[in-house]
Simulated assay, not measured.
Amino acid sequence: MDWLPALIGPDDGNLTVSQACARAAVLFFFGILCMRITGRRSFSGLTPLDVFVAIVIGSNISRVMIGKVPVVPSLCATALIALLHRLLALATVRSSTLGLFLKGRPQILVRNGAVIPAALRRHNVSKEDLDEALRLGGLEHVEQAKLVTFERGGRISVIARDG
């Protein structure tokens, strides 16, 4: 493994241009590997946990890129985080209790055109946020909504009343 330090440079931040480029190439493919391990959803921001994992992976990769941490241990730790995320995702499919713990429950904000103010406050959803969700759902007025839900991933979904 004597060739590795020569290729990717030292872990003290003193990299040559070619060493920085070599790290970038290695980390590019490592990032693809992490996306394959965790699955597409972790990088689409579906839940707060997915966003957290994406930030941690990105942060770890950036630290390796600039040469401030040992490469192999850092990549191993990052791969472990990706693998743990994948395992948790698989476990939540099989265990609704674990899914509730990690993702929470969807919360109803509006039912049959009636706003539930306590639910808005609890989830820090302003009237403007609610109005935006209604517009994105194709509605002009809250009275047109059958159901408005603050989903587990942080999005607001809207179901229109019939007619």
Results as ranks from 00 to 15, higher is better:
A79E: 10
S42F: 11
H141T: 07
L49T: 12
N60I: 07
I116H: 04
E128I: 05
V115C: 01
K146P: 01
A77G: 11
L33W: 15
D11L: 12
D162W: 06
L15P: 08
V125D: 03
A24F: 15
A79M: 15
R152A: 07
G104N: 04
R155E: 12
K146G: 07
L4Y: 09
A145Y: 00
G113I: 03
A160Y: 02
T16R: 04
M65D: 08
N14K: 15
V53E: 03
G99H: 07
G104W: 00
L84G: 07
R86P: 02
L134K: 00
A25C: 09
A160V: 06
G9I: 04
L109T: 02
L88Y: 01
R135Y: 01
G58F: 05
P70V: 03
L88C: 08
E143R: 03
H85S: 12
P48Y: 11
A145W: 02
Q144M: 12
N124S: 10
S62T: 15
R41Q: 09
P73S: 05
W3F: 10
V56L: 15
S157W: 06
S157P: 09
G31K: 04
Q19V: 09
M35D: 03
L102V: 13
I156T: 03
V115N: 00
V148C: 00
A24Q: 08
L75D: 04
I159D: 14
R122E: 10
G163K: 15
G67V: 09
L84S: 15
F30E: 07
D12E: 07
L15W: 10
E143C: 09
D12A: 14
V148N: 02
L80Y: 10
N124D: 08
H85D: 11
R36A: 11
G45V: 03
G58M: 07
L84Q: 04
R36F: 06
R94A: 13
I156S: 03
Q107A: 09
G31Q: 05
S44I: 09
Q144C: 03
H123P: 00
I156D: 05
I81M: 08
S74N: 10
V125G: 02
L83F: 14
P73E: 05
D50W: 03
A133R: 00
R135G: 00
I108R: 10
V26C: 10
H141P: 02
L130W: 01
N60E: 12
E132N: 10
V142A: 02
A82K: 06
V148Y: 01
V72G: 11
A91S: 13
C76H: 07
L139W: 02
H85G: 06
T78Y: 12
A77R: 05
L120A: 00
A24W: 10
I57R: 09
M35S: 14
V53T: 11
Q19G: 04
L136Q: 13
F43A: 04
M1P: 07
L46G: 13
N14H: 14
A145E: 00
L100Q: 12
F29Q: 12
F52Y: 09
R122L: 01
A79H: 09
R94Y: 14
G163A: 15
R23E: 05
G104M: 01
T47W: 02
I57E: 01
R63G: 12
G113P: 00
E140M: 09
E132F: 14
R155A: 12
V125Q: 00
R121K: 08
S74T: 13
S18K: 11
L139M: 06
A22D: 09
D129A: 06
K103G: 10
L134G: 00
L134S: 01
V158S: 04
G13D: 06
D50G: 14
